[in-house]
């Protein structure tokens, strides 16, 4: 193969820690936008932020799943395999992390692993690359980690995302946790977050 492999984290220990802390802050404070700086230059359409999440958290114990857009470019899987050592799986419900470059074309949330009642932690975290990620009018959220209410604008989203999230919420404590990454930022909608109907 003649693929020149793009480099991983410049400082693997500290970069991974910084990325993790951004993800932890985002998960602990759902629907807030946290800064996520990275200097990764992965092969397109893998965005630097998607790559940062994968390099910080995936390894031989945590398989990755790639959406159609990412799977279509062999260099993406090669890059992730080399830098994380993670298996890239074909079926979404085998993945610990699902990387999604085109959220509006992704399979329904129900296709991923939701865990079991005894082990609800054995579920997929879906990481979606979006164009817009900003505080403000969009999704009105409440739940653990949110004082009163948080509003966040995310685009693009899967077509019937609100209905899928409501179904996901009904599974609690099972469920899918969603991370959204945009250039320089990250936000989370863990399974506990309720999206209020617009009104």
């Amino acid at each position: 193969m003649s693929i020149a492999l793009a480099p991983g984290f410049t400082e693997p220990v500290f970069d991974a820690q910084r990325v993790f802390r951004a993800l932890m802050d985002a998960t602990a404070r759902p629907a807030t936008v946290q800064p996520l700086a990275t200097d990764l230059v992965p092969p397109a359409p893998l965005t630097p932020e998607l790559a940062a999440v994968a390099l910080a958290l995936a390894d031989h114990e945590a398989p990755l799943w790639l959406d159609a857009a990412l799977a279509a470019v062999p260099a993406v899987a090669a890059y992730l395999r080399f830098h994380t050592g993670a298996r890239v799986v074909e079926t979404p419900d085998e993945a610990a992390f699902a990387l999604v470059a085109e959220p509006d074309a992704m399979p329904p949330l129900g296709a991923f692993a939701v865990g079991t009642d005894e082990y609800p932690d054995r579920s997929t975290t879906v990481v979606m690359a979006v164009r817009t990620l900003a505080a403000g009018r969009g999704l009105a959220c409440e739940g653990p980690g949110i004082l009163d209410r948080a509003d966040i604008a995310i685009a693009p989203l899967p077509g019937d995302f609100l209905a899928q999230r409501a179904a996901n919420r009904a599974l609690f404590p099972r469920g899918i946790d969603c991370l959204f990454v945009a250039p320089g930022s990250v936000a989370a909608l863990p399974r506990t977050t309720q999206i209020l109907p617009e009104g």
């Binding site: 993800l23 998960t27 910080a56 945590a62 932690d121 980690g145 946790d177 399974r191 506990t192």
Partner: peptide, 10 residues
């Protein structure tokens, strides 16, 4: 870290 993220989510 993966365990912590799931712990916060549940």
């Amino acid at each position: 870290r993966r365990a912590i993220l799931k712990a916060i989510a549940i």
